[in-house]
Structure formats: structure tokens, C-alpha cells
Design a protein around this nucleic acid. Structure first.
Lengths: 138, 138
DNA sequence: CTCAGTGCAAATGCTTTGCAAATGG
DNA sequence: CCATTTGCAAAGCATTTGCACTGAG
């Protein structure tokens, strides 16, 4: 995700409005490496802006996703998580507490897709999910 | 997943019962590489055993998961998919039609986890999800 | 002013659960 | 027999939607 200031300009250039709710959500997400769920974001925003609604969180996350400013993670079977770091990286998730850690190792040079896949699919990227248990839960 | 016969013995040894519903579900899953959702399984079983209920499908899939006979795939953000092939392998998913293809390439020797991860997590495995579009949808 | 955004309440869609009736061993 | 399984209906959650109201530009 871009900085809040840059993001503001991006939204304006798309004819979108800068509301206090959105600003608070951006603030919470900026440099956030905790891979929050919508509820996580809601709770944090609510602390500094109690009038916010769940609906707005969902809609704003959707907007950010469409703008390519956050990535939706499909790694926790229970709920979606959001990642403001849109650079290619991978994750470990604790199957107990669902804590997600970033892995910035670039494996792309080691990952060669077999030909039959490229014949049937136009592959745009990949994501490695490591599964296990974190120290606390273990 | 084991063969239906072996699976029958496995269930018996766990004090579980072999019902016609379960047998039909096992039959549908045996050698199934289509990564069906619960609904997919339900529809297929219903064709050969119309009396089956959705509840039974869910409960049986849960049972098979607990026995380690199927793996739950968290690759489609919309719904869970089930894979009777429990050997380590990876997937490509079409973001449009959600068709999932198996990739049996063994990348494990190329994937070295950074030390800081092993310090915090006991990693039991990993899963590579390739994203893109299939020929039909493209 | 005007249109995009907000927020409530209701709806949706997948999955789970409570419980009485059915049935496998 | 009787513990397990089934299947209905209802509940449970995460997420989405309809719509009147609000407010940013």
C-alpha cells in the first residue's frame, strides 16, 4: 500500500472521496504487518473513531483491493485477511492462533512450472503458504 | 485417500459405521482429481443416492478430514474444496471459474525457510498456490 | 448542490448444530 | 439392542446488499 498521502491522491484521481473513516482505515493499515481480518481492522478503527461501521470497513477494504492497494489473503480457512504489502512474498500461518508471519525470501527462480500447466493456464503469480504451529501455541 | 475397501476397514477399526451414504461419498471421492466443494460432492452423490442430505456430506467430509483421508483446500476464497489426494502436491486455480489443477512437481528441495521462521514456528509443510486464468476463461 | 460514501438492518451463502428418528454391527 | 449416523430445521458466522441519510468536494 502507498503512504496515506499518496493514497489520498490516488483516490482523488479516481473521483473518490476522502472521508475520516477511510483516513482512519488507511492509518491502521499503513505499515501494518499483522495481516488483519476485517474484524481486526474494525476493532482498531473503532478505538480511534467509534462511529465507524462494519459495512464501511468491508467496503473500504474492497475498494483498496480493487485499487490494488491491499491483497486479500486466502490462507485462513475461517476468514479473509488483508495485507497492505502488495510486494510478492509468502506466509507462515499458525494453525492454532492463526498468526501470520511474512517471508520475503524470493523463491521464484526455483519454482519452474511444468509445461502442461502453461498450456492450460495463464499463470500470473504464486503464493507459498507454510503451515505449522507458532512457539506460543506449541 | 485409501481405496474404498481399505477405508471401510479403517472406519471399522475406529468403531465407525459403514452406511450407504458414506459408501457413495467414498466412491465419488476415490481417485477424484476435481477438487470438489461440499456442494459438488452433494450433487454427485445425490445422482446415485437421492436420499442423501447436505448435512451428511459435511459430516462425512469432516470425518474424512479427521482421519487424514482428505485434505481441505483453502485456495478458493468462496468455499472450501476437498482433495482425496493427501500426498504433497500443489495447485493452480483459475480465478474466474475456480477450476483447480494438480501440480505434482516436488519443490521442497528448492524451498529453504529462513532461520527466523524456524525459531518462531514449527513448520509442518507448505502449499504453493498458483493463480491465473485457464484457457477457457481467458 | 450533487454524487459518492456511510451505516443500519436485512439478506445471503456456506457451514455447523440440536435433536428425534433410523440403522449398522 | 444401543451407540452411531442420518436428516431436517434452525442457528451461526463472515460477508454483502438495499436504501435512506450524510457529507465531501
Amino acid at each position: 500500500m502507498e503512504t496515506v498521502e499518496k493514497l489520498t491522491k490516488t483516490l482523488r484521481s479516481h473521483g473518490m472521496k476522502i472521508t475520516p473513516q477511510r483516513l482512519m482505515i488507511f492509518k491502521i493499515l499503513e505499515n501494518n504487518t499483522s495481516h488483519p481480518s476485517a474484524e481486526d481492522v474494525y476493532k482498531k478503527v473503532k478505538k480511534i473513531y467509534p462511529a465507524v461501521s462494519f459495512t464501511t470497513i468491508y467496503k473500504t477494504l474492497e475498494t483498496l483491493k480493487e485499487l490494488g492497494e491491499v491483497k486479500e489473503l486466502t490462507i485462513d480457512e475461517d476468514r479473509k485477511h488483508y495485507d497492505p504489502n502488495t510486494n510478492i512474498h509468502h506466509h507462515v500461518i499458525c494453525s492454532a492462533c492463526k498468526k501470520i508471519l511474512d517471508i520475503f525470501e524470493d523463491f521464484s527462480s526455483h519454482i519452474q512450472l511444468p509445461d502442461f500447466v502453461n498450456k492450460d493456464y495463464t499463470v500470473t503469480g504464486f503464493q507459498i503458504s507454510f503451515y505449522g504451529t507458532c512457539k506460543k501455541c506449541n
